[in-house]
């Protein structure tokens, strides 16, 4: 029995050791094929996983390109690893490959940088389709994230293509990445108006607005006793998807609500005093002092006061927000 097995092994080893051409044996050929098959299997598994992972993250064309590049890169590595079993001398190929690689590297430096940046952006995901983002002073709505570039549209409807390398190396401000965002108004009222009542009116109005979020709660307070009036700061949180609509509609409602209660938005006013005398030594008398001085004693310093524009409803509300759409 043992003799039969030994002879079989002898026969087998003889077959496997047979040179096919040069020093290449059947065993070498089998190893070559096994490594190629393993490379194909690994490439298919990795490609499948890449496809699944990126399915909803990159456009279909780019996905095909990425999966093909990954497949052939892995297959090429396997092929190069298997080639020594066929006694192929790779040193010449590596030298030639190195030289060609350097040339291609210099020639296609930016293309490769954009490609790599695209891959990193796909994994990092600082923005999604439809997001409002500021990339290097360009405000766009993201329409497509491709493998070499990102396509956007400005709010004026202009097509913008930004190379991925630029996006990857610059600051990106994504205005809608978070669920909610805050904006604020500075609302001015006159000094004679009741600031507490104004705050109450603004809070009531915000409370009735569906998209002004209940939590985080809005914040309304007297922020400044400014030269022209009392400034009420109003901070409101809104869902990121609708914040611009809210910001543009609520302000006018606040203005109308305040004016409906008899309050007014203050206008900048200035009192001009005209000195009508030529006497150099006539002292200037400010109005508060003038009221207490008898008219007889007044020799000069006739004031001219501009008419206060009380009836005008022109708004002096300031916008304070980092984003204009």
């Amino acid at each position: 029995m043992t003799g039969i097995i030994d002879s079989a092994l002898m026969n087998q080893s003889t077959i496997f050791a047979l040179p096919l051409y040069g020093e290449t044996t059947v065993t070498d050929l089998i190893w070559f094929v096994i490594i190629l098959i393993l490379a194909i299997i690994i490439a298919k598994i990795i490609t499948l996983n890449i496809t699944r992972f990126l399915k909803n993250r990159v456009p279909k064309n780019d996905l095909n390109l990425i999966s093909k590049i990954a497949y052939w890169a892995i297959f090429s590595i396997g092929f190069l690893l298997a080639l020594p079993y066929l006694n192929v001398d790779l040193s010449g190929l590596f030298v030639a490959g190195g030289v060609v690689g350097i040339i291609i590297g210099f020639a296609a430096q930016s293309v490769f940088a954009n490609f790599l940046s695209g891959i990193f952006l796909i994994f990092e995901q600082p923005m999604k389709f439809g997001d409002n983002v500021l990339v290097d002073d360009t405000l766009i709505v993201v329409e497509d994230i491709r493998i070499f570039s990102t396509i956007g549209r400005t709010f004026e409807g202009i097509y913008v293509r930004i190379p991925n390398e630029k996006i990857f190396t610059t600051t990106i401000t994504n205005y809608v990445a978070n669920t909610a965002r805050r904006f604020e108004y500075n609302i001015g009222i006159r000094y004679q108006d009741d600031a507490a009542r104004a705050i109450e009116i603004i809070k009531d109005l915000i409370d009735k607005e569906p998209f002004c979020l209940k939590n985080p709660a809005p914040s309304v307070y007297v922020d400044q006793l400014a030269s022209d009036g009392v400034i009420i700061k109003t901070r409101i949180w809104a869902p990121s998807g609708v914040w611009w609509d809210v910001r543009t509609t609520v302000l006018w409602k606040i203005k109308c609500a305040i004016e409906a209660e008899g309050m007014q938005i203050p206008l900048p006013q200035r009192t001009v005093w005209v000195n009508s005398t030529n006497e150099e030594n006539t002292p200037f008398i400010p109005p508060t002092v003038r009221d207490k001085v008898s008219p007889k004693n007044l020799q000069s310093g006739v004031p001219f006061q501009s008419e206060p524009a009380k009836e005008q409803s022109h708004t002096s509300i300031e916008y304070n927000s980092s984003f204009e759409s």
Partner: peptide
């Protein structure tokens, strides 16, 4: 009835809710 929205959780990672 009246409508109102709110935020449940932090502004980054929370969800908008009908409140």
């Amino acid at each position: 009835g009246p409508q109102k929205y709110s935020l449940y959780g932090p502004s980054a990672g929370g969800v908008i809710t009908k409140c």
